[in-house]
Design a protein around this nucleic acid. Structure first.
Length: 178
DNA sequence: ACGATGATGAAC
DNA sequence: TTCATCATCGTA
């Protein structure tokens, strides 16, 4: 069983999509080969009011893609050196996205983009084979009691929103558990 | 504990 | 145009 996730999978709020991404496979095509890595950690950024989300500042050139169609990539540069990979979620016009923070063997959002060669030139492109980066369901079911929800990382400035348990980790697959 | 390193958004 | 900030990571 191997099914490429389509926009309809992503067209729900980020806090719903994020835990469901655990156990799915991030697939990167390089040349004629593919590398598939199971997603083990993901974080939700959802809606107009989430102060941890870039969309809290409104629609700008950078965040425009978060308001766009679900199933597109949102890739941005942080701290001058790390690309962050997000998948846009939610209905069109509603800003939300899921940050892919970890995959098997690569723990950390900046490390995985570096290792997979993911940069901003994928920004606003659909997650598809044609663009060389997509997500597959390979039939793995992750029971709910194997998922840990914690507050998000690096968003202490977000007040009450920093407390939301919108970081999802597969049990036993990640080092940084608070 | 801290510096690297550059885009972003807001203030001036 | 300047400035503070930033969804991080490696080294100390």
């Amino acid at each position: 069983m191997r099914r490429i996730l389509k926009p309809n999978f992503f067209a729900r709020t980020a806090d719903v999509v994020a835990p469901e991404l655990l156990g799915k496979y991030l697939v990167r095509a390089h040349g004629d080969t593919e590398r598939a890595l199971m997603i083990t950690e993901a974080e939700a950024y959802d809606g107009f009011l989430d102060r941890a989300s870039h969309a809290a500042k409104g629609k700008t050139k950078r965040t425009e893609v978060m308001y766009g169609k679900a199933g597109h990539w949102y890739v941005y540069l942080i701290y001058g050196m790390y690309e962050m990979l997000n998948i846009v979620t939610g209905k069109e016009g509603y800003p939300s996205a899921v940050l892919i923070r970890g995959v098997e063997k690569i723990d950390g959002p900046g490390k995985l983009t570096r290792e997979l060669g993911v940069t901003r030139n994928l920004n606003a492109k659909p997650a598809s084979k044609g663009n060389g980066l997509w997500i597959e369901d390979r039939g793995i079911f992750v029971p709910k009691n194997n998922i840990i929800a914690t507050p998000r990382i690096g968003v202490a400035y977000a007040g009450e929103w920093a407390k939301k348990p919108w970081r999802f980790i597969m049990k036993g697959k990640n080092k940084r558990v608070p």
